[in-house]
């Protein structure tokens, strides 16, 4: 009998993935560089005037965040699938959705959290007025876990295909739309001094809902993909 407790298994899984990720730092850093570069393309394209830039800044940062989430998403389960760790994960004596939630948490730590930390720099480059900064950070903090969870669903569904890239974007981008609408609108509202509590609460609700249901979908998708 294997006597490992759920917590022990989850801890081992997170420790392993963090260790592997720290050996491949470029996978963490490259999406962040991508965000910075895309963000700096906009002043070049629409002109550096603060009136135009400041108005589109929130939208640009959020769209860039979605694209960055897509960029790293394929890798979420790819290595695990190729080296056989994914099928071992199914066989661990722990409910698969719990492990899926752990994978989502790790993905957020390695891609969502760095993005939140990078956001002030992007806001600075895009001349986002200071009134919008705190709301931008708050929406990113609430929104990036949703991105990680949805990304995990798409990645788990396409992991066995080997060429998921474009397909994954097709699956995921429509699902990102509500997040984009509420988050960008909240920042815009903050800029004109409107109350943003409503949107923030909505985003928080969306996050709770996504983090509750997504692990089930990810678990189902992993079982389908590994066969």
């Amino acid at each position: 009998m294997i006597k490992a407790s759920t917590w022990q298994v989850v801890k081992t899984l997170m420790r392993r993935d963090l260790k592997v990720a720290l050996r491949r730092r470029s996978d963490i850093i490259n999406p962040l560089l991508f965000v910075l570069m895309v963000v700096s393309l906009f002043p070049l394209a629409v002109g550096p005037g603060p009136d135009v830039l400041g108005r589109i800044a929130a939208g640009v940062i959020w769209v860039t965040a979605l694209l960055a989430a897509l960029l790293g998403s394929e890798r979420l389960f790819r290595d695990d699938y190729l080296d056989g760790s994914l099928e071992q994960m199914i066989l661990l004596p722990v409910p698969l959705p719990v492990l899926a939630l752990a994978k989502i948490a790790i993905h957020w730590l390695l891609s969502g959290l760095p993005l939140v930390i990078l956001a002030p720099l992007a806001a600075l480059l895009l001349k986002l007025p200071v009134e919008g900064w705190s709301t931008l950070l708050l929406t990113l903090l609430l929104g990036t876990p949703i991105l990680s969870a949805l990304t995990a669903i798409g990645a788990a569904l396409t992991v066995s295909l080997g060429r998921g890239g474009a397909l994954l974007s097709l699956l995921l981008l429509p699902l990102f739309i509500p997040l984009l609408i509420f988050a960008a609108a909240a920042v815009e509202g903050a800029l004109v001094g409107a109350p943003v509590v409503g949107q923030v609460v909505l985003l928080a609700g969306l996050m709770v809902l996504t983090l509750t249901l997504a692990p089930l979908a990810v678990a189902g998708a992993i079982r389908v993909s590994v066969n």
Partner: peptide
């Protein structure tokens, strides 16, 4: 597929596997 993480050393792989097996 052996389920061995190629970024980690042999000992690290053994130790993590032991963690999964409790």
């Amino acid at each position: 597929k052996p389920g061995v993480k190629s970024e980690l050393t042999a000992l690290e792989n053994l130790e993590l596997q032991a963690g999964f097996d409790g």
